[in-house]
Write a protein that binds this DNA or RNA. Structure first.
Lengths: 330, 330
DNA sequence: CTGAAAGCGCTTACAG
DNA sequence: CTGAAAGCGCTTACAG
């Protein structure tokens, strides 16, 4: 077994109380004693038992993170920044992946809730009332979704959408198809609303196809639907769908960026792998994660439930997948 | 606070011992009492405190997983399968991402070691002696690396490499360039050796460029080096490098699959996003993860340190990025 | 089959 | 500034 407080105490000829204090609240201990204890503790390789500490403190120093799909490139940067920030603050991170199964989301969150001080749910799809109830049971912060009675960190897609529509309009497009994300996705609604507004402002006709799951395969399906329509510009719910569209269209001999323009959302690293590269609305994923941790830790330490919503800006990153539409489709 | 054993006991008019037994070792309790306790526990929403249980059992029911880079699409499937298998066995998973910083690897592993029963290290780059020492301190299973004195799950790249080289030879290639991975990477050595052997067997000339980090950007750098060489076939250390190569070559106007053939390793979902799609050596990522969990849990329960090495097969998946070389480069 | 008691490793009032 | 004692929530021999 590992070295215990008692062993350190014995080696120092002091009580466990003193060792405990020396290590957690150094002020309260005589400087000499403290140095001696610190030295011995180091020599023995002492590390406090999480279980012991947790039992008395009631805290776990761990936060839980629930994501829909680690394999979706949108989430790794968020996970990374959550971990980095949590680590800075001496918290461990327990991760659960729902594999896009909405039904498991709440169950996984509840499962984690026994072992963590607070929870971060990224892009949850569970019904709002359930989320509000969850947030009443323990500190929870939502990423990519606003929930009544809980803190959240969301994206303001308006700016990016406005830029995207203006960009297409400046190229000569007058019609845009939205390739919708999952029906019950909160951010799908946000994105659709933002796009809808931007189109109205710019006098652009908006159509819609979908819903599509945020996966490359679904994008390929979208491509075929898109090709049989009369629209030369598409904005997809996310990069994966956009990439699937591009891949499939290219395979079918179309020139993306010339015959058809495609815009994604997320600006994931993948946007630069394809040829042409994908024009995409940039989402500050890393900030999403660290802001969520900050919000959660505030809540843990202040012991109140702030319903703050942090909003992060988006902007368009123009690459090769958008261009002037063919004559007949202007 | 949450409901405790004592509260359940009080509500049932029995001792905490009995409640504890009823819930963990039902055989030992009178059937009627047990049912009553179970019902009350459920009504009260009782869930055992991990800390309390952990303190007496000495176990945490948690395993740690250290990966070099969650954002590398090779790892998410492994993480997912580790989580799924661990969850089946009632273990939680604590994840740490080293961000490709070799120096942090051991530190993160040691940090986790206080809070877990065992550790899985995926594609570690730390020196062998250190890894062996770590494995002496707690149960550890290595993925993608063989370590003396510890269990590991690795890939046998021979089969896939052999197929890859034969495939290129059958198309008419006589020269292949290996785009090497990180210098100290164990699997880079394995892959190079397998390729080297396959080339010798097939009388193919082997060249090498690199090392390259497993990232798309590095692949773009590789592309430029490759283009100025006289070789029409490249096998990359992984898909990311291969994708970077393709992206950059396409951008520079070359026809991948005709003027130059590119093969990746991992067969990640990205292989199908590009055009042409990437020919790649398939690695059974999901099995890598679940086999690692199985090995680790065996070790935890048997309390011995098996040095078993599980080897998983690879095979070539042919797509559009490989083809007949130009006349002058056969 | 059940209960009282000890103990896992720690922290924290309470005395001194 | 330091120590003895109680207690966090649980499990597990030990009696009965």
């Amino acid at each position: 077994m590992a070295v215990t407080l008692a062993e350190v105490a014995a080696a120092c000829n002091v009580s466990t109380s003193t060792v405990s204090r020396a290590l957690t609240d150094p002020e309260k201990v005589n400087a000499e004693t403290r140095t001696r204890i610190e030295r011995v503790a180091r020599q023995l390789g002492y590390a406090p038992s999480r279980a012991g500490r947790s039992l008395v403190s009631g805290r776990t120093d761990t936060v839980g993170l629930v994501v829909p799909d680690i394999a979706n490139p949108f989430f790794p940067p968020i996970i990374k920044s959550v971990q980095a920030r949590a680590r800075d603050k001496r918290y461990a991170v327990l991760i659960a992946d729902t594999d896009e199964h909405v039904a498991d989301e709440l169950e996984l969150a509840r499962g984690l809730s026994r072992q963590v001080d607070g929870l971060i749910l990224a892009s949850p799809r569970t019904a709002p009332a359930e989320l509000t109830r969850l947030a009443q049971q323990l500190p929870v912060v939502f990423v990519n979704r606003e929930v009544e009675g809980a803190g959240s960190v969301v994206i303001d897609e308006n700016e990016g959408m406005q830029e995207a529509v203006e960009h297409l309009v400046s190229l000569g497009h007058r019609r845009i198809t939205y390739l919708a994300g999952p029906r019950r996705s909160w951010s799908n609604q946000q994105r659709r609303d933002a796009l809808s507004k931007a189109c109205a402002d710019n006098d652009v006709e908006l159509r819609e196809l979908g819903p599509f799951e945020p996966q490359i395969q679904a994008g390929m399906r979208a491509a075929d639907l898109l090709q049989s329509s009369e629209v030369a510009a598409a904005i997809a719910y996310d990069d994966l769908i956009a990439l699937g569209v591009m891949s499939r269209l290219t395979e079918r001999g179309m020139q993306v960026g010339r015959e058809i323009s495609v815009i994604g959302i997320d600006d994931s690293p993948l946007s630069t792998v394809t040829h042409p590269m994908l024009t995409s609305i940039h989402v500050p994923a890393a900030e999403l994660g660290s802001a969520a941790v900050d919000l959660l830790l505030n809540q843990l330490h202040d012991d109140e439930t702030p319903t703050t919503t942090v909003k992060l800006e988006t902007r368009l990153v123009i690459r090769g997948s958008t261009g002037i539409p063919p004559e007949n489709l202007r």
